[in-house]
Amino acid sequence: MENEDRIVILDHIKDICKRRCILPVVVIVVMIALLFIVPFGSLLSPKKVDGIFNISAKDDFVEVSTKQMRYTGYDVKNGIGTKFSYYYTIKDGKCAFALIPQDLVKADGKNLPEDAVKEEIKNLTFKAKVIKPNRAYNEMISMFAKDLNWTEEDLNSISTEWIVSSANYHPYRYIFSLIVIILLIGLAIVRLINSIKGYKDPYRFEVCSYLSKEECHELIDEAQDELDSENYLQINATYITEDYYIDLDTSGAFIIPLKDVIWVFRLGRRGFDIGKHSLTYTINFITRDGEVVKVPRKSSDEAMAIIKSIKATEYEIITGHSDEKMRMAAAIIRGREEENAETQPEEKTEE
C-alpha cells in the first residue's frame, strides 16, 4: 500500500503548473476585454466625416472635413505645451465647437504674433476625438458667452452635447498601449502554454537553472529516491538529503546537487506587506562553475536553519556572507576555470 504521506516531487510540480495557469488566463481575459473597450479600431482608422454636424456623440475618433469655422478668441495648452484654438460653426440654429491645433490654423502675414491664428478657416480637414464637455470647455463657454452678451445657459442650449477635440487625439499613446496589450497577451499565452506542458510532463520543469532538461530529468528521479529513503532533514517545505537541496515551496521547485555547491549564504530585503517590518531572505547558492541559484522568500529563522543543515552535510561548503568568504569562493571558481583551460588543449591534441 502506497504511503499517503509520501512526498512526490512530480505531483508538487503539477500543482505549481496548475496554479501558474491562473494568472496568464486572467491577463489574457482582461487584455482582450480592453481590446473591445478601448476603440483601437476607430483610432487606427478614424471615421471620415464631411461636415462637423454629421458627427454624433457615439463616435470616437473622426477625421472631419469642415467648410467654414470661426475663431472664438480662446486657446488652451495641453500638458506638453502644444497649443490648440477653439473654433465654432453654426447651422440651422445649432452651434458646434472644435479644438484645433494652432499649427493647422496659423495666421498668414507679417508683423503678427507668433501664436496668431486665423479668424476664419475654410475647407480644413483634421483628426480629433469626440468628447463630452470638460472643464476647459466650460470655462471657454462662460467667457465666450460674455463676449456675445449671452448667458452661459443660452449658449449651452444651442450647442451640441459634444465637442471635437484634437487635444484628446493621442494616436501614439493609444498605439503604445495597443503594443503593450498585444505583448502582454503574447507573454501570457507563452507562460500558459509552458505551464500546461509542465503539467502534462513535469519532467520538463526547470528544477535547476544551470542544468539541461535531460539532466533535470535525472535529477528529479535521483532526488525522489533520496526522499523515499526518508533520510533527510526537513525545514518547512525544504528537504536536505544526503546529496541534494530540495525546495518544494508553493511558488516553485528547486533541486540543487550539493556536490556542485561551494558557497551558500542568505541576503535579506524589506518585505512589501503593510504593517510588517520583518525581512524576507533569499538563499544564494554559488556553484564551482560560478553559477548562481537564488531561492527566495524565506524567513530569517528558516534561512538560518537551512544554511546550518547544509553546513552539517559531508560536503565542504562555505556558509555565511563576508568579504573573506567571497574571496575564498572566487579562488575556488578561478581554480576550476584554470583546470578546465588546462584540460581543453590536451583533448584537442588527442583528436
Rank of each mutant, 00 (worst) to 15 (best):
E2F: 08
N3K: 10
E4V: 10
D5H: 12
I7N: 03
L10D: 13
D11F: 09
D11H: 10
I13C: 13
I13D: 07
I16D: 08
C17M: 14
R19F: 15
I22L: 15
I22C: 13
V26Q: 04
I28K: 07
V29I: 15
I32W: 13
L34I: 02
L35E: 05
P39C: 11
F40H: 02
K47T: 12
V49R: 08
D50A: 14
G51E: 05
I52Y: 11
F53N: 05
F53L: 10
I55G: 09
S56N: 06
S56T: 13
D60M: 05
F61I: 02
E63G: 01
S65A: 10
K67M: 09
M69G: 01
R70H: 04
Y71W: 11
Y71A: 01
T72G: 06
Y74G: 00
Y74A: 01
V76C: 09
G79I: 13
I80L: 11
G81Y: 10
G81S: 11
K83E: 13
Y86G: 12
Y86N: 12
Y87E: 11
D92A: 15
A96P: 04
F97A: 12
F97M: 08
L99K: 06
P101I: 14
L104E: 07
L104S: 07
A107D: 06
D108C: 02
D108K: 11
G109F: 08
G109D: 03
D115M: 14
A116L: 08
N123C: 06
T125A: 09
T125G: 02
I131A: 12
K132I: 11
N134A: 14
Y137V: 08
N138E: 13
M140A: 14
M140E: 11
K146F: 14
E152A: 09
E153Y: 15
L155S: 04
N156D: 08
S157K: 12
S157A: 14
I158E: 03
T160I: 09
E161G: 13
S165D: 07
N168G: 05
N168K: 06
N168I: 01
Y169C: 07
I175K: 05
I175E: 02
I179D: 01
I182W: 10
A188Q: 02
I193N: 05
N194T: 03
Y199V: 09
D201C: 06
D201L: 06
R204C: 03
V207Y: 10
C208I: 05
S209E: 06
Y210L: 12
E215V: 08
H217Q: 10
H217L: 13
E222A: 15
E222P: 01
A223P: 01
L227M: 11
L227I: 08
A237Y: 14
A237C: 05
I240W: 03
T241D: 02
E242P: 00
D247W: 00
D260I: 06
V261W: 15
I262Y: 09
G268R: 01
F272Y: 07
D273Y: 06
I274M: 07
T280D: 04
Y281H: 12
R288L: 15
E291G: 01
V292C: 02
V292L: 11
V292W: 11
V295P: 02
V295C: 08
S299P: 00
M304N: 03
S309R: 01
K311E: 10
E316T: 03
E316F: 13
I318C: 03
G320F: 08
H321Q: 07
S322N: 06
S322H: 04
A329R: 00
A331D: 07
A331F: 01
I333E: 05
A341S: 05
Q344P: 00
Q344G: 00
P345A: 07
T349N: 07
